[in-house]
Amino acid sequence: MADDDSGEFRAGQTGLIVRVPEAEAAVRVWRDRLDPSARAGVPAHVTVLFPFLDEARIDSGTCAAVAEVIGRHPSFETRFDHCGRFPGILYLAPRSDEPFRRLTEAIAERWPEAPPFGGRFAEVVPHLTVAQGQDDAVLDGVEADLHRQLPVSGRVTSVDLMVHDGVRWQRRVCFGLR
């Protein structure tokens, strides 16, 4: 979820993600080896917003507000048919990233104190991280393998609130799209 090579998460951190279980068969072996968030319990996903609010701020009122914001958005089909890269990072790119962008924008607008990725990037690019903190030669090999397994398609019907307990990420709440 962090999209850096630190792999360091702290207890009480939260994030909102769209699970992509249809991608697990294609990416699991690589994510388990090359993505710290996978080793910490995060499934294949597209991040909606990370970091979100500290766990101490997540109460029934916050959950109701997240459910209301997420519930305004329709379910949608997604398809991952190509890879993309950031420096040291390989990811699957959704063919159409607009529905993911709209979710991120809606949550960030409602909670401006929690900008996507802590405000580190001028533009948020929806993606499913496969490997991070690797040199180009490693990423080239992973990408070649992934191309043989693409496309991956699925239907997005929910957004999960994930919470780090100090050791692993756990799903706390699942919010349905309409």
Rank of each mutant, 00 (worst) to 15 (best):
E24S: 12
R102C: 14
P99I: 11
C83E: 09
P115A: 02
A26F: 11
Q132M: 13
I70R: 07
E68S: 07
G119I: 05
V142G: 10
D81C: 00
T104F: 05
P87W: 10
E24Y: 01
A122T: 10
S96H: 10
G118C: 00
R72M: 10
V142L: 01
L53W: 07
W30Q: 11
S37P: 04
E143H: 03
R72N: 08
G61A: 12
A26C: 09
E77C: 01
P115M: 08
I107Q: 04
Q134D: 02
R57G: 12
A122W: 00
R28A: 15
D35G: 02
H82F: 06
V42K: 10
H82M: 03
A25R: 14
S75P: 13
L128V: 01
L92F: 02
L103Q: 11
T62F: 14
E113D: 14
A44N: 08
R101S: 13
F86N: 05
A131W: 03
G84K: 09
V48M: 12
F86Y: 14
G71S: 02
P21G: 09
I58G: 10
L90R: 09
D32M: 00
Q132W: 05
T62P: 04
P116L: 13
D97H: 06
E109K: 14
E143N: 09
E68H: 11
